[in-house]
Simulated assay, not measured.
Amino acid sequence: MTARIALGAAPLGNLYREVSDEDARAVLEEAWTGGIRHYDTAPHYGLGLSERRLGAFLRERPRDSFRLSTKAGRLIVPNTGRRRGTDEAAGFVVPDDHVRHWDPTSDGIRRSLDASLERLGMDRVDTLLLHDPDAYDLDEGLRQGLPALAGLREAGLVDEIGIGVNSVAAAVRAVREGDLDVVMIAGRYTLLEQPAAEELLPLRRERGIRVLAAAVFNSGLLASDAPATAHYDYGPVPPELAERTERLREVCARSGVPLPAAALQYPLRHPAVDRVVVGTARAAELRADLRHLEREIPAGLWETLREEGLLA
């Protein structure tokens, strides 16, 4: 099953908390030892810190032994304005000596790729995704960014292109308006909620795209201990979703299944989902995730969840 899991490296960019180089390295070692060979990062994650840490690790491995994806759309440029000390307003505990600059133009996308390759210390990435265009200007992002990505693919600079978003509507538009290979949808096809099933996932058959289901724990809500510090879409957890999570946990427990095991395996039941993407800055958590991925789950659990109104 490890062929169907990818490591998302946002936490290695100090997402929500500071992570030491040693702890970041331990997570990557655990991923590699556990058989993970697909890694995803982005300039946005820690203003380049995630890319630097991931690249330093992967440069020690044969380049053809893993697949690597990063994202474009946000350029990381020096901060010439007001500084508050850290980038915590954007969710990352790193110095705010740089800022993000939205630029989905052909020149901006190419500059973003070149900067990512420099931070990674790589001569290529396998997949390049347009990152969160709906957070800025979706029309502009799709109109300029998708052709720019296609141009890089045509020039042989990347193998695959796609989009990485939290919004199903943005993903559907991108697939219909561009010629994409991959869609990474975060948090919208999980055990907690499945809006991507209505329109996005059926496009796999129509357009032949690969779908990567990211944030399958909904930012920690579906983790085994449901920490009080969990987030939902980078903000506080709505009470109704906290209640739904507890109902999911109870039903899973009656079948003897840990909630995170069900959360990891549920998206992979859909034929459109190529793999799940999980992120953590703790090696022990990743080790547990790999065990959960291999756990046998009674087929009746999914039917029980439907009967309880917890799955569509």
Rank of each mutant, 00 (worst) to 15 (best):
T2G: 09
T2A: 11
A3S: 14
I5F: 05
G8N: 07
G13F: 01
N14Y: 04
Y16L: 15
Y16S: 14
E18Y: 10
V19D: 11
E22T: 15
E22I: 10
A24M: 08
R25N: 15
L28D: 02
L28H: 01
W32Q: 09
G34A: 12
G35H: 08
R37I: 05
D40M: 03
D40P: 06
P43D: 08
P43G: 15
G48R: 01
S50L: 07
E51L: 00
L54S: 05
E60D: 13
E60V: 06
P62K: 08
R67G: 15
I76V: 15
N79M: 03
G81E: 02
G81N: 03
A90P: 01
F92T: 00
P95M: 01
D97F: 03
H98G: 13
W102N: 12
T105W: 02
G108N: 09
G108V: 10
S112C: 15
L113M: 04
D114R: 07
S116Y: 01
L117P: 00
E118F: 09
R119K: 10
G121D: 09
R124P: 02
V125P: 01
D126C: 06
L130D: 07
D132I: 06
D139Q: 09
E140A: 14
G141T: 05
Q144W: 06
Q144A: 13
L146F: 03
A150N: 07
L152T: 09
R153D: 10
R153H: 09
G156D: 12
G156Y: 04
I161L: 09
G162I: 00
G164S: 14
N166Q: 11
A174D: 02
R176Q: 13
G178S: 08
G178W: 02
D179H: 11
D181R: 07
V182E: 03
V183F: 02
I185Q: 04
I185E: 06
Y189L: 01
T190R: 02
L191S: 06
A197P: 07
E198W: 05
E199T: 15
E199G: 12
L200W: 00
R205C: 10
R207Y: 11
R207W: 07
R210Y: 04
V211E: 00
V211F: 00
L212R: 01
A214D: 10
F217Q: 03
N218T: 13
D225R: 14
D225F: 08
A228P: 13
T229V: 14
P236M: 04
A242G: 15
E243D: 15
R244H: 11
T245E: 12
L248E: 02
L248I: 10
R249D: 14
V251I: 14
V251F: 06
A253N: 11
R254A: 09
P258T: 07
A261R: 01
A263H: 04
Q265A: 06
L268G: 07
D274I: 05
V276E: 06
V277F: 03
V277P: 04
V278M: 03
G279C: 08
A283S: 12
L286K: 00
R287Q: 15
R287M: 13
A288K: 09
A288W: 02
D289Y: 15
R291L: 12
I297D: 05
G300K: 08
G300L: 07
L301C: 06
W302A: 08
E303I: 13
T304M: 13
E307T: 13
E308I: 06
G309E: 11
L310M: 07
L311E: 06
